[in-house]
Every structure is written in structure tokens, then in C-alpha cells.
Simulated scan of single mutants.
Amino acid sequence: MIILGAVLLIAGFFLGITLLTTAGFVVLIIGAVLMLMGRSGRSVGGRRHYY
């Protein structure tokens, strides 16, 4: 999710599409939160690690 968010964010900047930039930022933040929760040992969605 982090990679997808970064790709959407960069594509939104280059293409000038605000909605794409916003979606990329949101997906990037969600991916980072899920990664931090998984690294802290907390199960996310029934999985110990979230990739």
C-alpha cells in the first residue's frame, strides 16, 4: 500500500489531478499506519505481519 500510495501521489503531481494526489496521500498514510501496527506486534486483520 505504501508503494501504491507513493505512485499515486507522484502521478497526481505530474498529471495535475488533485483527486489522484489526495488518494495517493491517504493510501500512503494508511499503509504506514498498518506497517507500524504490524511491526509493533499487534495483529492487523488477523495477520501478524501486514505486507
Rank of each mutant, 00 (worst) to 15 (best):
G31N: 01
I10G: 05
V7D: 02
G38D: 09
G5V: 02
L19A: 14
L15M: 13
A32D: 01
G24H: 02
F25W: 06
L28W: 00
S43V: 08
G5R: 03
L4M: 08
I2N: 07
R47A: 13
G5C: 01
R48A: 14
A11V: 11
V26G: 07
L15H: 08
G16I: 05
G24W: 01
L8M: 13
T22H: 10
L9G: 02
M1C: 11
H49Q: 05
L36P: 01
Y50K: 05
R39E: 07
Y51M: 14
Y50F: 15
V27E: 03
L9Y: 03
R42C: 07
I17E: 14
M37P: 05
T22N: 13
L8D: 05
G31F: 02
S43M: 10
L8N: 06
L36F: 15
M1L: 08
H49N: 06
L15Y: 07
G5H: 05
T21K: 07
F14R: 14
L9P: 00
R42L: 14
L19P: 12
A32V: 12
I2F: 06
I10A: 13
V33I: 15
L9H: 04
H49P: 01
H49W: 08
R48H: 10
A6C: 02
A6W: 02
G46T: 00
G12S: 02
L28M: 01
T21V: 08
L8T: 03
A32L: 12
F25G: 12
Y50W: 15
L19N: 11
A11S: 10
F25Q: 06
M1I: 05
G16V: 03
A11F: 04
G12N: 02
T22S: 14
L36N: 13
G16A: 07
F13R: 04
L34N: 15
G45N: 00
A6F: 09
S43W: 01
G45E: 00
L28G: 06
I29A: 11
I2A: 04
I2L: 08
T21P: 00
T21Y: 05
L36M: 14
L15W: 09
V26N: 11
I29K: 04
A23C: 06
Y51I: 15
I10M: 08
G5P: 02
G31W: 01
I2M: 04
L20M: 11
L9K: 00
R42G: 10
G45D: 00
Y50G: 11
V26T: 13
T18M: 12
L15C: 09
A23T: 11
R42D: 10
G46H: 00
L36R: 13
L34W: 12
V27C: 05
G24R: 02
T22E: 15
R48D: 09
Y51C: 09
V26H: 09
L9D: 03
L19F: 14
Y50S: 14
F14A: 11
V44G: 06
T21M: 09
R47H: 12
I29N: 03
G12W: 00
M35N: 14
I3N: 10
T18V: 15
V7A: 13
V44W: 06
A32H: 02
F13S: 04
F25V: 09
G5Y: 01
I3S: 12
I2T: 07
I10N: 06
T18A: 15
